[in-house]
Design a protein around this nucleic acid. Structure first.
Lengths: 153, 153
DNA sequence: TATTGTTATACTCTATAACTATA
DNA sequence: TATAGTTATAGAGTATAACAATA
C-alpha cells in the first residue's frame, strides 16, 4: 500500500464546481429580482404559495427544507411588503396559514419571467440536450438524498 | 401570438436544481469540517494557500471571487485559529502577504480527505461516467462566465 | 491620483433554543 | 406531553463605502 502523497485540490470535487456555478447563477438572479424588491428565498416562498392558496408555515418549512424559525422571519418580511397575508387556522387554535395578497399574485408571474430569462442566458453555453442531461442528473442526486422538491398536495 | 398563460415553476429552472443540490452538499460538508474547527470558505482559503506559499490578499480575493473586505475578515479568523500567518510585503509598503502556519499545513490534507469522502458519498448515486459528464458541463458553464478557478501562478 | 488593505455597517441566511398557546 | 408557531441570539457570508498608508 502506497503512502498517501496527494492532497486533492478544490477542482477535484464535483461539490466545488456545483457550488461555484450555483453561487454565480443565484447571485445573478438575486441582482435581478432585487429590483422587484425581493430576495431569492422570498421568490421561492412566493412561488410555492402561488400554487397552493392556503399553506401552514410548518408545511412550508418541510417543503423548503428550512426551520420554522426561518419561515417565520421570511413571512414577517413578506407581510411587511404586503405580498403575503396571514390567518389563524379556524380548525386548530395553534395553527396559522399563509396566502398571497393580490399584489403578491401579480408579482409572481413577473418574477417567473425573470427566472426564465436568467436561466436561459446563464445556461446558454449549453445545448438544449446538455441542459436536459444536467437536469436529469441533478434530479437523480436530489432524489437519492430526498431533497425536498415535491409539490404541496 | 398566444397570450402567456403559464407561470413557470421552480423545478423548471436548472438554477433551482443546482441550488438545491449545491446547498445540500455544502451543508453536509460544512457539518463534517466543523469538527475540524473550520468552515467551507476557510477550507477553500486554506487549500489555495497550500499550493502557493505566500499570497497577497488581493490575489485571494480575485481568485475566490470575494471582496477584499471579505478576505480580511476570513484572514482574521484564520489568524486567530493560528492556521495562517501574515506579513508585510517588503517590496511594497502597501501590500501584505499570507501563508499557512505549520498547523495549517498539517490540517489541509486532513480536510482534503474529508472533501474526498464527502464527494464520493454524496455523488454515489451517479456512475463514474455520469459524474464526469456533470463535471464537464459545469466546467463549461464556469468557463463561459469566467468564474474563477485558475491556479495561482 | 490610483492601489492595497482594513474597518465599519448592514442585511440575508442559517441554526439552536427558549418561549407561548393550544391540543 | 406533544405540536404549532414565534422570538431571541449568534455566527457566517456578502456587499458597499469610508478610511489610512503607500505608490
Amino acid at each position: 500500500m502506497p503512502t498517501r502523497k496527494t492532497v486533492s485540490g478544490l477542482h477535484h470535487h464535483l461539490g466545488y464546481w456545483l457550488r461555484t456555478v450555483s453561487n454565480a447563477v443565484s447571485r445573478r438572479f438575486a441582482r435581478r429580482v432585487e429590483r422587484e424588491g425581493v430576495t431569492v428565498a422570498e421568490w421561492v416562498f412566493l412561488r410555492v404559495l402561488y400554487d397552493a392558496d392556503w399553506v401552514a408555515p410548518s408545511r412550508l418549512a418541510a417543503h423548503l427544507g428550512m426551520t420554522r424559525g426561518a419561515i417565520s422571519k421570511l413571512a414577517d418580511r413578506l407581510l411587511e411588503k404586503a405580498l403575503v397575508r396571514w390567518e389563524a387556522n379556524p380548525d386548530d387554535g395553534r395553527a396559522h396559514r399563509l396566502a398571497l395578497t393580490p399584489a403578491g399574485r401579480t408579482l409572481v408571474p413577473r418574477l417567473a419571467r425573470i427566472a426564465d430569462a436568467n436561466d436561459a442566458s446563464f445556461f446558454g453555453a449549453l445545448s438544449p440536450g446538455e441542459r436536459r442531461r444536467v437536469e436529469t442528473l441533478l434530479r437523480k442526486i436530489a432524489a437519492a438524498h430526498e431533497l425536498r422538491n415535491l409539490p404541496i398536495d
